[in-house]
Design a binder for these strands. Structure first.
Length: 276
DNA sequence: CTGAATGTTTTTAC
DNA sequence: AGTAAAAACATTCA
């Protein structure tokens, strides 16, 4: 489902639904979603209260009393929704957090790719793979110098580089295509060969597009919905993703779709320059 | 039937 | 050893 703007939208819509609620019981209908100890997940959560929800890149961090944090990654299709405890279970509801007030937070995921981990608050970077991530767009650490220097040492193409999360964390397939189109860089360009000037422009566009997408509550292109079941608004702003075969809005050239890093990649063969 | 779909992790291959 | 490409995960839809 989601890249950083969608996860941020989920975070914002989820907080008013669950903050302050106390967990009464946890049910794992599809236990594999939880990749830490299942008994601990079921036994340690009852009695704990949800204090807040944070986010790093595409990871949600559900903060609980008792110094506990549930690290939740929605991967491709994960969704949260609040129901009454006795509402019928959807075919793809996999985890339920039942609260003391009779409501329940359910995790629904058609493809079952999403994962949750229960960790001690403060240890997330050590225990969950968040430690391998690069900086977030719009963070103080994501500077021109850092970005220029990081791209210089990469040996692969720019699309794969932006997707792998180790330099910038939070972009996914949709926003990478959009950002590269806006910066007029061909997705197969060697990351290390892009000029300093273009890298600076690229960083600005990453920041701008992510900010705008968050403002518009994310992008719904497949099945993404926020915690209230609402779709995003940024799909109206997409210029290349999902528009293969249509004319480029800048030059009119037919947008082309290829495969890069195993992912569908749409770009304008005329506007986007290849650096190699 | 075949392939592709918002993503990460694991395996394989240099 | 470290990087990068490929496969795996599971389901639905065109």
């Amino acid at each position: 489902m989601p890249e950083m703007p969608e996860v941020e939208t989920v975070r914002r819509t989820l907080i008013p639904l669950v903050k302050g609620k106390t967990i009464k019981k946890v049910t794992l209908w599809f236990p594999k979603i939880v990749s830490t100890d299942h008994d601990k997940f079921i036994n340690e959560l009852p009695g704990k209260k949800i204090i807040d929800i944070d986010r790093y890149a595409k990871f949600l961090l559900i903060r609980l009393t008792g110094n506990l944090t549930i690290v939740s990654h929605l991967r491709m299709e994960g969704k949260y929704h609040l129901t009454s405890v006795n509402a019928p279970k959807d075919k793809h509801d996999h985890v339920q957090f039942e609260f003391t007030d009779g409501t329940a937070l359910r995790y629904n995921d058609v493809r079952k790719f999403g994962r949750m981990q229960l960790v001690l608050t403060g240890t997330e970077r050590m225990t969950t793979g968040i430690g391998k991530l690069g900086y977030e767009p719009n963070s103080a650490e994501f500077t021109d110098d850092y970005f220029i220097d990081s791209l210089k040492r990469k040996k692969k193409n720019i699309k794969s580089t932006l997707l792998d999360q180790t330099i910038v964390a939070g972009l996914g397939n949709i926003y990478v295509d959009e950002v590269l189109w806006r910066t007029k860089i061909h997705p197969l360009s060697a990351a290390s060969k892009i000029s300093r000037k273009k890298v600076i422009e690229l960083r600005k566009n990453i920041n701008d597009i992510i900010s705008l997408a968050i403002k518009m509550h994310g992008t719904t292109v497949h099945t993404y919905l926020d915690a209230n079941g609402h779709s995003g608004g940024f799909q109206k702003e997409l210029k290349v993703y999902g528009h293969a075969g249509e004319p480029c809005v800048v030059c009119g050239t037919t947008l082309k779709k290829i495969k890069v890093a195993g992912r569908g990649t749409t770009f304008c063969p005329h506007c986007q320059v290849i650096y190699k």
